[in-house]
Write a protein that binds this DNA or RNA. Structure first.
Lengths: 78, 78
DNA sequence: TTATTTGCGGTCTTATTAGACCTCACACAT
DNA sequence: ATGTGTGAGGTCTAATAAGACCGCAAATAA
């Protein structure tokens, strides 16, 4: 069950991910290629539409060439 | 699809989680109570049997009273 | 011994992710 | 105007996480 609370959390994470991707100068399709995740899926993640799994989280880190912890290093929803 | 590679990754994460739980001095049931995740599920996570979602990851951090990044701060499988 | 706790694994249903593909509108350059 | 890249969503199937419950064997306590 995906609670309204979760929605906010996922949305916040999505914003963070988007920021990281932009900083890295990647387009959705470029990032898609870099981590083998469909670009439409990445867009959904950034929009907080899906609750990604652990392995997907690590894949994203690969594309960003960053330590996975970076993906969780952000201010939670205020 | 859950590849053999993923299996290793999840197993490694499970070991790390288990270590964190032990350090915190929690039993599976205590932790279960602390984050509202069924104890049988936590056992499976520690055994690397399931690929948890983002929100579940955050829930685990709650039980450990730790920053979510701590859950990803470990040496990946060698 | 007896009782309690603990880790662990199985089962079942439902909700949802994964994964692949497609379409569209918009911007910008050619 | 034509082509290209981009963000954003929609659709479909198969795989699987979520969630809740149960039972058991070994360890621990009483």
């Amino acid at each position: 069950m995906i609670t309204p609370q979760d929605k906010k959390v996922l949305k916040r994470f999505g914003e963070h991910l988007r920021k990281l991707r932009k900083e890295k100068g990647l387009s959705l399709r470029e990032m898609s290629y870099a981590c083998s995740i469909d670009n439409s899926k990445i867009a959904k993640i950034e929009k907080g539409m899906i609750n990604i799994t652990f392995t997907t989280l690590l894949q994203l880190a690969v594309a960003l060439e960053a330590n996975p912890t970076v993906l969780l290093a952000y201010e939670p929803a205020e």
